[in-house]
């Protein structure tokens, strides 16, 4: 009994935290989605009294606007595509790196992991601005790219303020979130399974594809979720590195709330984004559970 009481007490602070800073704000946003914008930004009153009678002033207009104008759907699709591409590139880059760290001598592993998370020590925005310089038209990198490109007969290209720059920035920022769960998984692998597979006739590719890869799927799913979800709602990177053609849903939400000051429509977009992420996360959990059952 005492033990159970202890557990209750311990679980209260985080529960309270989530209620205060997640559940209640989400509820506010949800209600805001059905309200009218205020005349000078913010929200119009939810209800008013007319001749002593309470009248609710709510609407579905914000939702119909979302559905009726295909541009919003396209923006959602584009954001999902950017996030998926970021996730895929992160996975392809992080997998060999994680494998290498997991297989390196124990005394080097902590150091290598430290190097992976080292970028977190400096501010996120500063690191993104750094990419502005790297990808800028006068940078050595851009000039080298153009030198090769024009040498091959192409027209000079711009790197900054393009979808390319956005993807580069997003991959750069999210890579550690893919490396860490993958490493945690790969590090636990029983190497005798690979010996057994080799002994039973599997070549290097078959050993990877039949043993290492399926056993690493929980790590792949965890890393993909940690990259895809924040990437989907990202606004700072498209803002700084992207051009007008590479804005994402996060930018639109920010624009609606801060610039256009149409809070209700911003709330609708936020809710749709949250719902989309939730759906994807549930799907991922479902697949992961299937994997865990087998593993």
């Amino acid at each position: 009994m005492k033990n159970r009481l202890g557990k209750w007490l311990l679980s209260w602070p985080p529960l309270l935290y989530l209620v205060l800073f997640f559940l209640i704000p989400t509820a506010i946003m949800f209600v805001a989605a059905f309200r009218f914008p205020g005349d000078y930004g913010g929200l119009a009153p939810m209800y008013y009294y007319e001749e002593g009678k309470l009248i609710w002033d709510l609407t579905l207009e914000n939702f119909t606007r979302l559905v009726e104008e295909p541009i919003y759907f396209e923006l959602f699709a584009k954001s999902a595509w950017y996030a998926a591409l970021t996730t895929l590139i992160c996975l392809v880059m992080a997998y060999p790196l994680s494998w290498l760290i997991a297989r390196s001598a124990k005394k080097y592993r902590d150091l290598l992991l430290l190097l992976v998370i080292l970028p977190f020590w400096s501010n996120f925005l500063i690191r993104i601005y750094a990419w502005m310089i790297i990808l800028g038209p006068q940078s050595a990198f851009t000039r080298a790219v153009n030198w090769v490109w024009t040498g091959m007969g192409g027209e000079p290209v711009q790197l900054l303020f393009t979808p390319f720059a956005v993807i580069v920035g997003m991959v750069y920022v999210h890579l550690p979130f893919m490396v860490l769960p993958l490493y945690a998984n790969l590090e636990k692998h029983d190497l005798s399974l690979l010996s057994a597979a080799q002994d039973l006739g599997a070549n290097a590719w078959q050993r990877f594809w039949r043993i290492t890869w399926p056993l690493s799927l929980p790590g792949v799913f965890a890393g993909s979720a940690l990259v895809f979800i924040p990437a989907l709602g990202m606004f700072a990177i498209p803002d700084i590195l992207g051009g007008t053609d590479s804005i994402m849903i996060g930018n639109l939400i920010k624009q609606q709330i801060l610039d256009t000051r149409d809070w209700p429509f911003g709330a609708v977009l936020s809710i749709m984004l949250t719902a989309g992420v939730l759906a994807i996360a549930m799907l991922g959990a479902l697949i992961a559970r299937k994997g865990v059952k087998r593993g």
């Binding site: 010996s195 002994d199 087998r294």
Partner: peptide
């Protein structure tokens, strides 16, 4: 190499593939 030998091993810890 091991994978090309007509020889198989029963390992001490069995080394069964857990996901199969």
């Amino acid at each position: 190499p091991p994978e090309k030998r007509p020889v198989h091993t029963v390992f001490q810890n069995y080394a069964l593939f857990p996901h199969m």
